[in-house]
């Protein structure tokens, strides 16, 4: 060490004790209340979905005409046999709600993944190559934003014929813009940084630069958007099912259950309220997780 190194040693030593990005992430994660609440909610609902056959007291499809529209156990006339009552066909409401998690989560994950693949691919291409690629993709974005998404989704699902896969495909294909906007801007920013120039000077091809230098730096924003899109896709499915152009009976989808309960909502309000609460908890869990992840992964924490 040269002489002038010594004064700096104190300062540098101070800084080399800093934590790795992974350690900072874990530390912030456990200090973020919103994230913990959201993650717990999601975890519980995911477990319910996985263990649905074990947890559900009845089959979600089995009809018992003698026991139609029983109220939940705490209301007058409720029985312990049907904890949350039964619907208009005499099916156990709790079991249908439990199986409903599977529909929501499958569609949420599926559609958010379809959107991710489209949006991130386009975003990285537009951001990295710029020029006409960027202009065309930006035009595509404007056109997509101008389309009334729900209306188009309703029409397409109705025309093609409703099934879980069609709903996943259509909701996914209509929800890529958020990924695109964020990854495009981030790619543009990262592309102009010197470490990308250094990689190019070391002989890396565009493909190598995108995979090795750019995508790892996009991961945290992509995960954040994915959690938000998960919630958005779940809400989109429930809206479609509610309007009758999504999941079809007798599959237990929460949106569909609300639609079915609507006729009787003035004297059997729980038929509408319970599936709504399930939806709310699942989506708020995803949003809290997304908000939390954004705070945790942003360099300065929450912006103040």
């Amino acid at each position: 060490m040269t002489d002038s190194d010594i004064t700096l040693a104190a300062v540098e030593l101070d800084q080399t004790t800093l934590l790795t990005p992974g350690q900072i992430f874990r530390q912030r994660m456990f200090g973020h209340k919103g994230f913990l609440i959201g993650a717990t909610l999601i975890l519980i609902i995911a477990i319910v979905a996985l263990l649905a056959p074990v947890l559900a007291p009845h089959s979600p499809f089995e009809q018992s005409l003698a026991d139609r529209m029983l109220p939940p156990v705490w209301s007058e006339g409720g029985t312990w046999d049907y904890l949350l009552g039964t619907d208009q066909n005499g099916r156990d409401y709790l079991s249908r709600l439990i199986y409903g998690t599977r529909v929501s989560i499958t569609i949420g994950l599926g559609a958010a993944t379809v959107g991710l693949l489209i949006g991130v691919t386009l975003g990285v291409i537009a951001g990295y190559f710029g020029g006409w690629a960027d202009h065309s993709i930006s035009f595509l974005l404007t056109a997509q934003l101008a389309l009334p998404g729900l209306l188009l989704a309703m029409a397409l699902v109705f025309i093609i014929g409703p099934s879980i896969w069609v709903v996943i495909g259509i909701v996914g294909v209509l929800h890529w813009t958020y990924y695109l906007v964020v990854t495009r801007a981030a790619t543009q920013r990262i592309r102009s940084l010197d470490f990308v120039a250094a990689a190019a000077a070391a002989g890396a091809s565009p493909r190598q630069i995108i995979w090795h230098e750019i995508l790892p730096n996009l991961m945290s924003s992509i995960i954040v958007i994915f959690t938000f899109e998960l919630g958005i896709a779940i809400l989109a499915e429930s809206s479609l099912s509610f309007l009758g152009v999504g999941i079809q009976p007798p599959t237990p989808s929460w949106g569909l259950m609300i639609a079915e309960g609507k006729q009787a909502m003035f004297y059997r309000p729980w038929l509408v309220i319970l599936p709504g609460i399930c939806l709310f908890l699942l989506v708020i869990g995803a949003n809290l997780m997304g908000d939390g992840l954004r705070d945790i992964t942003s360099p300065e924490g929450r912006n103040e």
């Binding site: 919103g34 429930s238 809206s239 509408v272 709310f280 708020i284 949003n287 809290l288």
Partner: peptide, 10 residues
């Protein structure tokens, strides 16, 4: 956060 999670039709 809540308004974002409430299904509009509900």
């Amino acid at each position: 956060v809540s308004a974002q999670a409430i299904p509009n039709f509900w």
